[in-house]
Amino acid sequence: MLLLAMDASTACLSLALTSDDGLRLEVAQKGPATRAESVLPAVYRLFRDAQLSPSELQAVVVGVGPGSFTGTRVAVAAAKGLAYGRNLPLVAVSTLDTMAAGLPAPGLRVCPLLDARREEVYGAVYQNPCAGRPLAGYVNLPLVEFLSLLDDGPAAFLGDGALRYRERIAEHLGDRAWFAPEEHAHPRGLVLARLGRERLRAGETTDPHTLVPLYLRRSEAEQAWPKSPRS
C-alpha cells in the first residue's frame, strides 16, 4: 500500500511516501513551507522525485497539530482533498504523537513541547513514546504548569518549545531533565507514516468531511476579534 504522510504544524513541512516494503522518499522542507500555495506543490514534487504517480496513492496520513494554526489548517485541508477526491482512507495523528514516537529514550518520560507563545506550550507526556499514545490528553499550558504535571522521575524534552525554554526547564527540574538534539524539534514524515500505517491497520480512520485540526486554543486573530456587546 502506497501511503502519503504530511505534517505542516511546525516550521518544517514534513512529507513521506512509504509502501509495504518501506520508505520510498522523505522530505523535510524548512522555512515558509506552510503557506497554502506551498503544500500541494511540495506533495506533487515528492511523487515526481520518487518516480511515482499520485494515481498510485492508496492512503493519506496527516498531522493535525497542535502547532501553527495556518500550517495545520493547510495540511489538513490538502489531506482531506486528496482523500475525498480519490476515495482513500484518511488517518489523523497528533503532531505531538509523531514527535514523541521519533525519539528513542528508553526509561524516560518523553515530553514533546511546541512553543505556543505568551510563555505557554503545547505538550503531552508519554511513557511508551514509540506507540504514540500520551498518558493523558494534549494540553496548552504555561510552561511551569506543564512541568508541575511531571512526577519525580527523569524526563526527555524535545521540540521548539523545549529549545526555547531549555534554561527554565533545567532550572525547574535540574538533572532530571534531558534534552533531545535540535534535529528532533520537528516531526518526521517517516515516523508519521509508521504511526499512520499502524492506526490504519487497526481501523482508526477518520471521515474527511468531519476532520478538523487539533488547535487546543483559539487563534490570535480570533482572540483579538471584538466581542459582541451583551444584550
Rank of each mutant, 00 (worst) to 15 (best):
V144F: 08
E198K: 02
L147A: 06
A202S: 09
G203C: 10
R197Y: 09
L192K: 00
P142N: 03
V144Q: 07
T205W: 05
F179G: 00
P142D: 09
P187I: 10
E145D: 15
E145R: 11
P134A: 14
V212L: 14
T206W: 14
L163H: 05
E167K: 05
E145Q: 11
N140G: 08
L192D: 02
H172A: 14
A180E: 02
R201P: 02
G196F: 02
A177T: 08
N140V: 12
R194H: 02
A177I: 09
R133L: 07
P208H: 04
G153K: 04
T205V: 15
L211P: 06
R199M: 14
L158F: 11
E145L: 10
R188W: 14
E182N: 09
A193M: 04
L173V: 04
D151P: 00
R197E: 13
R194N: 03
R199Y: 12
L150G: 01
T210W: 15
C130K: 04
F179K: 01
T205M: 15
R201Q: 14
V139R: 04
R199S: 10
E198F: 04
A170D: 11
G132R: 00
Y138P: 00
A155I: 04
R188S: 10
R176L: 13
A155P: 01
A170Q: 15
A155E: 09
A193H: 00
A156D: 07
F157A: 01
L158P: 03
L150W: 03
A162G: 07
D151G: 02
L143H: 04
G137K: 07
R168S: 15
R188L: 02
A162F: 07
V212D: 12
R176N: 03
L135H: 12
P181R: 06
L211Y: 06
R188Q: 10
A177V: 10
G174M: 09
D175H: 01
V191E: 08
P187D: 10
G137L: 13
L158I: 15
A185D: 05
P142C: 02
D152L: 12
D175W: 02
A156H: 12
E182P: 04
R188M: 08
V139G: 03
L141S: 06
G174K: 04
L143W: 05
A155H: 07
G196R: 03
A202K: 11
A185C: 10
L190F: 00
R166I: 14
C130F: 05
G132K: 00
A193N: 01
A156Y: 11
L195Q: 01
L147E: 05
R133Q: 11
T210L: 15
A156I: 11
E182L: 12
H172D: 14
E145N: 09
L147S: 03
Y165T: 10
A202H: 14
D175G: 01
I169K: 05
T210K: 13
P208I: 08
A185M: 14
G159E: 07
